[in-house]
Design a protein around this nucleic acid. Structure first.
Lengths: 215, 215
DNA sequence: ATGTCAATTGACAGTAACTATCATAATCAC
DNA sequence: GTGATTATGATAGTTACTGTCAATTGACAT
């Protein structure tokens, strides 16, 4: 590997490190690209060459999770039923995220407070959903826009999102994996208030596995 | 109502109308706030007072749908089972969106091409999800962060999102309502590849209602 | 009508995230 | 080493947005 790429890699790492520190200290909006460049000891021009926009600095941390997810899924999607592979990928990715406690919490708290960065993260997640559709479609020999494929992909992302959220909001007391498993259970048992088409004939009066919380 | 508010209202409308026209003509990024102000015949200062940011101009069209959703849901959530009210609200809102063909398509195509605006829309949708959680929680006498509530709210938004997307991507040949109904059916029948916890005991080899599409 | 007061407006100045360009300096290929 | 290539940094510009302040306009009592 060339010496050039090594240097670029080190640059990127230092930028992210220094930027996160500044964001944590003064807030995302208050930190200018110029100050980041100063902290990372390079010119604004170079900074913009590495990260064309400010939010990419924060978002770069999420790419590793996305890559891990795709890797795990690809690894076991051929040996096992799809739903198991999907669940496995969710669990593994979530656990990896839980494991990096301080960094995950830091990055999320920065993002939550910064509307622009937060919005960009949503957009990134939507992109990941599309990627997952492709993976699923390939595995099931279906088209990526098959309704069942789209539904499965979005459900998976939803589960991961809720679980990760909960881990944060409970002060990392609830492991993401447990929440994700619980969500899958709820879905499978239909123990949730699901939207359904308005009663066409009978109302089966579905009985939730757990009684709905009443006052 | 004062004459003052009338004027403000008319201002807002003209701004949105002219801005959408400009966006459609030259693209979102290429249209400057200054040119919008010129087209709407007011100073940039006033424009910024009406719409603190550029994306709010585009997003303002979505607020009506969100309000309609909340209204319909509130209207029938007390008389009927929650899931029916939820489905009804989804259907009504989607049909209203379908009905405004040209405008909906225009706004969506603008947003899809503009990363910043698109990202903001995601953020807005996330906010709506939180609002829906509150509504559901109130109706079911539960806490807004109850897992079942969150799951239900996000599932509802997901269904609406997929349905609206499909209506657009199929050149408005597939009515949103039909897609939404189909999605609800798929969920209820578990005819989808759902993520589930890795097999702990047996593999029941679930049989989808419709055979999975094979090549 | 007219004067008074408050809210709206628009002009101006400033900040910061980008974008484009180009000379200079560091790497690579030989 | 030398020449081609590529990364760097300085500089200038565009644009979204923020803040301030004087001028204007509408609301309202008399």
């Amino acid at each position: 590997m060339g010496l050039r790429e090594k240097k670029a890699q080190r640059n990127r790492e230092r930028i992210v490190r220094e930027a996160l520190a500044l964001f944590a200290r003064h807030g995302y909006e208050q930190t200018t690209m110029e100050s980041i460049a100063r902290a990372a000891e390079l010119s604004p021009s170079t900074l913009y060459r590495c990260f064309p926009s400010k939010d990419l600095i924060v978002l770069s941390r999420f790419k590793s999770y996305a890559e891990e997810f795709a890797r795990v899924f690809a690894a076991c999607s051929m040996k096992r039923p799809v739903d198991e592979a999907l669940a496995q990928a969710i669990f593994t990715t979530l656990e990896a995220e839980d494991a990096r406690e301080t960094e995950t919490l830091l990055v999320r708290s920065i993002i939550d407070k910064a509307p622009v960065a937060r919005a960009r993260l949503w957009d990134y997640i939507a992109e990941q959903q599309r990627q997952l559709c492709k993976l699923l479609a390939h595995r099931l020999h279906a088209k990526p826009d098959d309704l069942r494929i789209v539904l499965a992909a979005q459900t998976a992302m939803m589960i991961a999102g809720i679980a990760a959220d909960r881990w944060r909001s409970t002060g990392r007391k609830t492991p993401s994996r447990a929440t994700a498993a619980e969500l899958m259970r709820l879905i499978e048992q239909q123990a949730v208030v699901f939207p359904r088409p308005p009663a066409k004939s009978v109302k089966p009066a579905r009985r939730p596995a757990r009684p709905a919380p009443r006052k």
